[in-house]
Amino acid sequence: MVAILGQYCINVSDLERSVAFWEGVVGIPVVSRTEIETAREAVIQSPHGGSRMQLAQQLGQAGPIDMGTAIWKLYVNTDDCAALFERAVAAGCEAVTPPARLDRWPVTVAFVKDPDGYLLELIEYHQGTPATVPDPKKLEA
């Protein structure tokens, strides 16, 4: 038996705002859209691989997303942590932690909160990514 994690779904309060952030700021495009009776959805995925993420606006829900305690953070691999951090902050994201190179691992990380308040860890690997993880520094944009 083989099992592979393929897609994650998060609730968003404004689908078009979230799509604009993920496509326009982060650079991960929408690969499909779906409308069902209870929700509007968009699936995003890098053309270079990695997991898909579904953004879902629940039509019966108003107001901000209740973050609860289930999701801690979402990882975004990048070839330039500082530049993506600056783009996200310029687009209105809350800056949580500016880019810093870590002593324990060969990475630079930064943290921002996306338009719905999800904590994003922006991570730039300096000595290649873990096995099976696409390396943004070896791919063309």
Rank of each mutant, 00 (worst) to 15 (best):
A83D: 06
A82Q: 14
W72G: 11
L74C: 07
A95C: 04
K73F: 14
A82S: 15
A70D: 09
K73I: 05
V96P: 03
R87A: 02
F85R: 07
L74I: 14
P98R: 12
T78E: 00
F85K: 01
D80A: 07
R87Q: 04
C81N: 12
C93M: 03
C93Y: 04
A70E: 01
L84M: 03
C93P: 07
G92S: 07
K73M: 08
A88V: 02
N77G: 00
T97C: 13
I71H: 08
T97Q: 11
T97V: 12
A70P: 07
E94D: 08
A88K: 12
D79S: 09
V89P: 14
A95R: 07
T78H: 11
D80G: 10
C93I: 07
L74F: 14
A90S: 11
V96F: 02
C93Q: 01
A70V: 06
N77F: 04
C93R: 09
A70W: 13
T69S: 08
N77K: 05
Y75W: 12
W72C: 09
C93F: 01
A82E: 15
Y75C: 04
A91C: 11
D80Y: 00
V76A: 07
K73P: 00
T69Y: 02
D79E: 13
C81Q: 11
I71N: 11
L84E: 10
F85L: 02
V89C: 14
A82Y: 01
D79C: 03
T97I: 07
A90G: 14
E86V: 05
V76Y: 00
Y75T: 14
A83P: 12
Y75K: 00
D80T: 08
A95Q: 01
V89D: 06
A88C: 13
G92W: 08
D79I: 00
I71V: 14
A90P: 02
C81P: 10
A70T: 05
N77P: 03
P98M: 04
G92Q: 05
A83Q: 04
Y75S: 08
T69E: 13
A91G: 06
W72H: 10
V76P: 03
N77A: 04
A70H: 15
R87C: 03
A91K: 04
A90T: 06
V89F: 10
A95M: 06
A91L: 03
D80W: 12
N77L: 13
T78Q: 13
A70R: 12
A95S: 13
Y75F: 08
Y75E: 01
I71S: 12
A83N: 10
